[in-house]
Design a protein around this nucleic acid. Sequence first.
DNA 1: TGATTGACCAACT
DNA 2: CAGTTGGCCAATC
Length: 115
Amino acid sequence: MKAPGDNDSFFQRVYEVVVQIPPGRATSYGAIARYLGTGRSARMVGWAMNASHTSLLWIPAHRVVNRNGTLTGKHHFGGSEIMKQLLESEGIKVNGDQIVNFEKIFWDPAKELSY
DNA sequence: TGATTGACCAACT
DNA sequence: CAGTTGGCCAATC
């Protein structure tokens, strides 16, 4: 166990970005990965989401989808309807497993969160 | 400790 | 147009 708050883990960095996603918006794994400078390590973002339940913070992983706007990790929410309802609950329209007007609600951390 | 997998993305065949 | 491969890094077997 490392010093709390001093986590320089890749996951912690992903969490801080994801939790800052405003409601009614969504982003993609690759966008986060690029923002962190990891580039093509978009897989790690997915892994971070997988471990998100281990984090003490609530990670709105339902706001994080693949670059196509498809709910790739819906199965990890305990059901395909869960993620869909969560998004619709925030005003995001979801058609089947894909977000409607995804480019419209797309939230780019590199753009909104200038570092 | 080495090999495999993983909620992705992009390019190549 | 669909299937395969390479890449990144960390966790699990």
